[in-house]
Write a protein that binds this DNA or RNA. Structure first.
Lengths: 141, 141
DNA sequence: TTACTAGCATTTGTATACTAACGAAATAAG
DNA sequence: CTTATTTCGTTAGTATACAAATGCTAGTAA
């Protein structure tokens, strides 16, 4: 009686809704973030500021990015003068990624923008609803 | 006293969680869907089956895709033999996108797979939680 | 020491996703 | 009717995102 699948409606599928929500977030992100950073570039910078210099692949795991993806992200951060790449003397396979001074000086501003972005993205929801959504998304992963 | 932003934690930001949830969904999608369809290709097929033949840009709006994005999606569906492209005789700017017979015969199977994919993606959540999440995501957009 | 295994970084290929700019065609405004 | 605007499709450029293959290095087991 209950639990019938019913007709298939695209707008009732998680994947579709997640894509729409992601689009909304990305648009808001771009209008709030300094230095034209992308969400992934932003995440990488924050992570390095948390854990300190680390290898490229490790940074990828810390930010849930594929090895090929994190490489591109790090390359662009380097082009923007926000990270430096150095050979690890103790392990010749590793490349140590570290924040530059200008990036380190930017972190507080990034965190502030990050809060604003999250707020704006969740703007249609009440405080209780926001908490609920975050909890559900966290449980899903 | 309440509502303090607190320290900035990446895993407490909507954007980050949305990205992780999307990754989870994409992985599940790929293992369930027929013909190696991608989520966007899937959405486009479903939409055409709902509204019938339509122009490329209109299809893009119906599936929340940019004009540049929908073009690539339609091109790949054509390469897979799932849609046909025809000039609109009444409006020479328009390209009419329509399902091929083999695609039309596939739609029921796609909808069934779609339900399974949504179920598997939401598997960590209870029935009530799933409803709550869907409602919140819908409200967010 | 040799061989195996694993980890690290890179590259190639495919697929979104959006911006911006373009020309062609249709429509609205004058 | 002609100008202006809009819409449509296309293309180029940038940036994720993942699979798969390659080469190099490190650590381990034989």
């Amino acid at each position: 009686m209950t639990d019938e699948p019913g007709p298939y409606r695209l707008e009732d599928q998680v994947g579709y809704l997640l894509r729409l929500a992601g689009q909304r977030h990305t648009a808001i992100f771009q209008s709030h973030v300094p230095m034209r950073l992308t969400p992934t570039q932003f995440s990488a910078l924050i992570r390095i500021s948390e854990v300190g210099p680390c290898s490229q692949n490790h940074l990828g795991r810390l930010t849930a990015m594929d090895v090929a993806t994190i490489k591109g992200v790090v390359d662009r951060l380097r082009e923007k003068g926000l990270v430096t790449l150095k050979r690890d003397p103790g392990d010749k396979r590793r490349t140590v990624i570290a924040l530059t001074e200008s990036a380190a000086a930017l972190i507080d501003q990034l965190k502030s923008a990050g809060h604003q972005i999250s707020d704006a993205t969740l703007e249609p929801l009440s405080g209780a609803e926001r908490e609920r959504l975050m909890k559900l998304l966290r449980k899903m992963t």
